[in-house]
Write a protein that binds this DNA or RNA. Sequence first.
DNA 1: CGAAGGCTTGATAGACCTCAAACACAGTGG
DNA 2: CCACTGTGTTTGAGGTCTATCAAGCCTTCG
Lengths: 248, 248
Amino acid sequence: MNSDYFSDAARHPMIRRLRSITDIPRVELDALMDVKMKVVEIDADIDIVREGERPTQCVLLLEGYACRYKLLDFGKRQILAFHITGDLPDLQSYHLEVMDHSLCTLSPAKVAFLSHQTIDYIITTYPKLAAALWRSTLVDASIFRQWIAGVGRRLAHERIAHLICELVVRHRAVGLAQDFRFNFPVTQAELGDATGLSVVHVNRVVRDLRSMGLISLAGGYVAVRDWARLKKTARFDASYLHVRGGEP
Amino acid sequence: MNSDYFSDAARHPMIRRLRSITDIPRVELDALMDVKMKVVEIDADIDIVREGERPTQCVLLLEGYACRYKLLDFGKRQILAFHITGDLPDLQSYHLEVMDHSLCTLSPAKVAFLSHQTIDYIITTYPKLAAALWRSTLVDASIFRQWIAGVGRRLAHERIAHLICELVVRHRAVGLAQDFRFNFPVTQAELGDATGLSVVHVNRVVRDLRSMGLISLAGGYVAVRDWARLKKTARFDASYLHVRGGEP
DNA sequence: CGAAGGCTTGATAGACCTCAAACACAGTGG
DNA sequence: CCACTGTGTTTGAGGTCTATCAAGCCTTCG
């Protein structure tokens, strides 16, 4: 266990995350900080949980990127969500026994494992934390809905711009993108699997967004060059992220 | 209040629904049946809640079809979910103050309203019901994930076949499609908005599925003619619906 | 330095869209 | 009873966004 993370509520990634979407009383925060978690370092491109498995614990992402995905026929893949520091990417496994998708690191990552028993204890003891955890899965669901609308009805440029807008807001909500620049260790192939596009097309769209002066994307980082115009081309409205205080 | 619905647990739509995905002790079921709900009849094509609103109650669908949708620019629309008898289509509003999408009837419907206060009472008093409600929103989220994969990576024929497979299983799970035939008061335009396709293309795909002898679709009803082949063309696996006892 | 993975670009192809119009059917009213 | 209207379905034709195939380039790393 790393005291850097867990000694101080302001630095506890899970607390930052939960507090970004809801208010939690001090007592319950303190209780959460006392929870024992096994911390593990994991390489990039490692499946943490696989579709069909029956996990007995949930993952808390402390550092790095992860994604959820489904595999389809003919090697096709659909990424369902990106996850960043503080996220609980498979909290649903607490109630849904069998994984209906897989969870995979996209970069070297540090994660903590929370046993379902522990979650049980938290939920039955701390009503506000219980509410916060439920709410967290509901925010995930809201993002899923937005993604359905994206792949269903948006053009390629809008989809990719929208995804970047989403990640900007989520990073900023937990204090990880001060100047509209943040870690983004995602290949163009993965971007394609997330947006339902081919690598080739992703590449062309990214080239366009770059040449329009909206973003720069290289070396595992995104920097937003023109937030207003990026939002406009994405037709982005952050309210679906249900962040307290709205878009930063 | 209609005693037909609420006098007997086996006929209570919400109880059928919750029991289809999880186990709930008798005491809590009885408690749920005692909950007061205002029952209202609503015409087809009426918005029950709209994006941006802050509802103080949740909807329980007693009869009829409803859908959740988002409106996009240029009159584009994306349907996010279909809802049938027993569903709680906007339960997430209990924790997410502002609606990020709208809820609309697709047929004449009968709904009951559950105030957030009532839900509060249920959750704080009956832990198994609390778990069941959370689980219900998690099943919704699982369906959203499947839909992302559908619009993102599946061909038109697969998408529509898959949607019908999903509705077959969901109807059967609550006893509403004995012989693989069930109510489906959905226009082809709405089918298109759900699958991310144009009306014209939906029409052609439906024509194909019909001529392949997989389904018949008319007069507000779907009948599955060849379940095995329909599943195969959809590449359908019901596990994402997290129905107790699996696919019927 | 060779291998591997990721990025980039060109050319061709296909799935699906848009436009347009005809058809079917139920409800309405004279 | 029959036009009239509106909504939903169906079909044809042409167009486009995006996929696929193919290949070259760059960077990283053992």
